[in-house]
Design a protein around this nucleic acid. Sequence first.
DNA 1: TTTAAATCGGACATATTTGTCCTAATAAAA
DNA 2: TTTTATTAGGACAAATATGTCCGATTTAAA
Lengths: 144, 144
Amino acid sequence: MFSKACEYGIRASTYIALRSLEGRRVSLKEIAEEIDSPVAFTAKILQQLSKNQIVDSVKGAAGGFEIQRSGIDRIKLSEIVYAIDGDNVYMGCGLGLKKCNANKPCPVHDKFVQIRNDLRYMLENTSLYEMTAGLEIGLTYLKR
Amino acid sequence: MFSKACEYGIRASTYIALRSLEGRRVSLKEIAEEIDSPVAFTAKILQQLSKNQIVDSVKGAAGGFEIQRSGIDRIKLSEIVYAIDGDNVYMGCGLGLKKCNANKPCPVHDKFVQIRNDLRYMLENTSLYEMTAGLEIGLTYLKR
DNA sequence: TTTAAATCGGACATATTTGTCCTAATAAAA
DNA sequence: TTTTATTAGGACAAATATGTCCGATTTAAA
């Protein structure tokens, strides 16, 4: 559904949000450990998220990544997905046709539109804050 | 959502079904033209579909691909997807966790389960016959 | 029996995604 | 001011997905 990069991106953002809620800035190394992702690859993804203002990066010693409290409430999964994978998940034709639309639909156009709309709705209505909810109390996990 | 191979596979199967309903066996070349796909790559995919008994292949001159009428009614999109992409679309964790399940879920496990279930239901209940319905009368398309 | 039209299947080629390595830049702390 | 811990970013490497080529095999028709 999403690229690996995007999966890591969501997990990383969620972990940063979790620690930011505690007022703690986290390093790339810690993030990669906690979400079980390749360090250098994760670095690239975090750069991208930083450029797209999903996360804030602070250079230098004692630097790291963080997300402001307002961002944790405001940022939705859809924004992370868009920053990394673009809009293909929402827009692309299920059968790969370039010009598939309501006027010239593929045989499953309507059915895919419905499922994609559900997916979009979910992504657009799930905030980072909601993502962190179960993590502290061991209800949900970001690795394994 | 699906691999390119899978997209071509669905389109190819649908086109073969369409022509089989007219009692016409079709060649690889014709299929690739009609679904706008690379010929040799499509050949590989058709081999796979043939091995998985989605399509029947006939070797030699006047050979080609066809699907029996009973197959056109019986075969669901889910079987084509499974033959080419496996069960990742249904089963895999949305955030890429290997051991994500109801007991140790990722933060969006439940939400993804719902969307995947909708997708699975759709794929398991859409037959090749249904796929061909709008094609003849220009209501739906397999290329562009 | 030969020829031609077709699929089969292995080897190869290219493109994309995923992942690594190293140096530069930055900033806090010694 | 130097050292150390950090992110930034470019170049490279590996893995996977996508796509091509060609000879072998099969079968209908000449």
